[in-house]
Design a binder for these strands. Structure first.
Lengths: 198, 198, 198, 198
DNA sequence: ACTATCGGGACCGCCCGTTAGT
DNA sequence: ACTAACGGGCGGTCCCGATAGT
């Protein structure tokens, strides 16, 4: 309906404006008035749709987490044998880095918040754990299909993920510092060679 | 004891109090009055020693960076052949993690700030680069001494560091999520095996 | 009655309170909180209507200047020949003095400000110049109607205005020091006699 | 003695610095620290020589008043008949204006203060009254020497002084607005003609 | 005589959220 | 659904002055 349509749009505009401002200046340094101005609405509208600035933040966080989950489920449907699938993931490093870089400031805000709120912390950590489970299962699949040979799939998964995360972190904070794509290919290559069945 | 002595102590007390409050509540959420109370000094004293809250923050950052540099120079003086030295580093993971965990909140504050201030960003990234250089030289030493065999020492260094950083990051944010010491030993083992001369 | 109505009233109350406090204690010595209390509004309301204390001050100044202009246009419509009109003006000295005395403190504030802000200075001086032009034209009218005889109407206007201003200034700062009405009548008398056609 | 000499110099430096800052920014807007910096001394020195910022201000005021008195006594020693003496005073308008312009800001500060402090007000007004007495006596001298003819010397003195003050005020605030020297000569001429014995 | 250090207060500006009104 | 007006309070900064020390 017309009215509802407009309301939804207003909501979205507020959320988008908030994300932008939070990313640019941080949560605390961003005023509600600022968000409203950016969104082109009045403060009344803001508090009509949200109960507090905090709530807007949490909604943004939730949206971000949902996005993560969706990504994960896409990864699960890849084809080929396990080593190939891992290598193919490596190839998208550049894309991932670019995406991550844009979202980094707000992401750091999420973490800052998480450190002071155990509930948020739990929610933030969850994706990490899911990645680990997902990867662990994938490696076990590799053992079953006979392409990998490893003592403990869980630990191996953590090793590979740690390396990937390390590349990511450095790539995000210091993109020009090295050719991170090359580093990731080399590193994954060495690790896979160590884990591959001869 | 002299005037100067007392002044230095006051300064230190302010810095320590600020560090604690910043870590506990974040930069923005911490008031100058709060810092002063914690430090047991007046606002007059605070603004006698520092021109702004921001300046206190930057001094803390500087102190932290200096500490990093000192650590690095200690690492450089280790003995034994290169693979052994690397392995011995992994053994201190637990200690490093504990130390890092304590400093994490303020560290995240540093990064949040860095994202909004290119100058700070540069300063924050520098240690990363120095670690890379340091490690790269160490690996070349390994090549010279005949224990390692690698195509490009610089990239290999980045690979190893990325893995280490990844373990660290996960260990900091999710200490209970896995046995990070074991993961680091396993991972470094695999990587070294890949780089060691047969 | 509407929202707007109330807003206007609030604005007015703030301006009036500010004028009173500025006059009583001076611009710098008057706090925003003080003005708010006097006006019976909150600081939120204050900063909703004005961006700063300075802005309130400038609005007061503007209002005062507008009042001056209005007065001038009233003077222009008097009747009788020119010498009579000038004499009739002198007779209101007492009234003018009383009015001026009340507004003096804030007026001095205006000037103090003007000395430090060329833009304000220009605005403050403008009325002076307009008075000169107005008077000059009036004297020329006297020449045309044959009641006055003078070499340079502009200079004569400045002479008369200077005298008037001098009486005013002394009357404002030292009302009890002399019978300023009598002085003004005597002085204007002598000047007019010097300029009147025999 | 050496020590005393240095102390006096410090005092003077503080007073000069204060005068400059007060003139530039106003009494309230000028901080003690600012004065100290300008004078090149510490705050301790400041409060060693003066008990408060206010005291410095009052000392400046006193100095200014003493200067006024000195000027007056110089005027009293002029030669020639009274009309000539008055005319000769007129000729120094330009010099007076320039001097007054420089001291205007601090002078306005004096008056602002005076309005809120009856004691200061009395001190500020005194020179005005002395000028009136001085002038009144001079005019009576003119009557005695047979060059002037007037009903009430006191009022005539006030008339002439009012005109002079009016020219001065305008000349100070709007120096470019007219040729104030010419205006003063013309005005005094007309007034003297009215008062001179035929 | 002069300095460095410190105390505590108060001000302006802003901010988050609410309410009266459309 | 949305706006304008408003409430009350906090936060960084600075300021005047006092004191401990040289």
């Amino acid at each position: 309906m017309g009215l509802q349509q407009r309301a939804i749009e207003t909501r979205t505009r507020i959320l988008e404006a908030a994300e932008e401002r939070f990313a640019l200046e941080g949560y605390d340094a961003t005023g509600v008035a600022e968000i409203c101005q950016e969104a082109g609405v009045s403060k009344g509208a803001f508090y009509h749709h949200f109960n507090s600035k905090q709530e807007v933040f949490l909604q943004l966080l939730q949206g971000w987490l949902d996005g993560m989950n969706k990504q994960l489920s896409v990864l699960g449907k890849a084809k080929g044998d396990v080593p190939d699938r891992i290598l193919s993931m490596t190839r998208v490093v550049r894309v991932v880095l670019q995406a991550a870089q844009k979202g980094l400031p707000i992401y750091l805000e999420f973490w800052s918040r998480a450190l002071r709120d155990p509930g948020v912390m739990e929610t933030m950590i969850e994706p990490f754990r899911q990645y680990r489970v997902f990867f662990s299962e994938m490696l076990e699949e590799g053992v079953e299909e006979g392409t990998l040979e490893l003592a403990d799939a869980s630990i191996a998964a953590q090793v590979i993920l740690s390396f990937a995360l390390g590349v990511l972190v450095q790539g995000i904070f210091d993109p020009e510092g090295a050719d991170w794509e090359q580093v990731s290919i080399e590193g994954i290559g060495v690790l896979l060679k160590g884990y591959q069945k001869r």
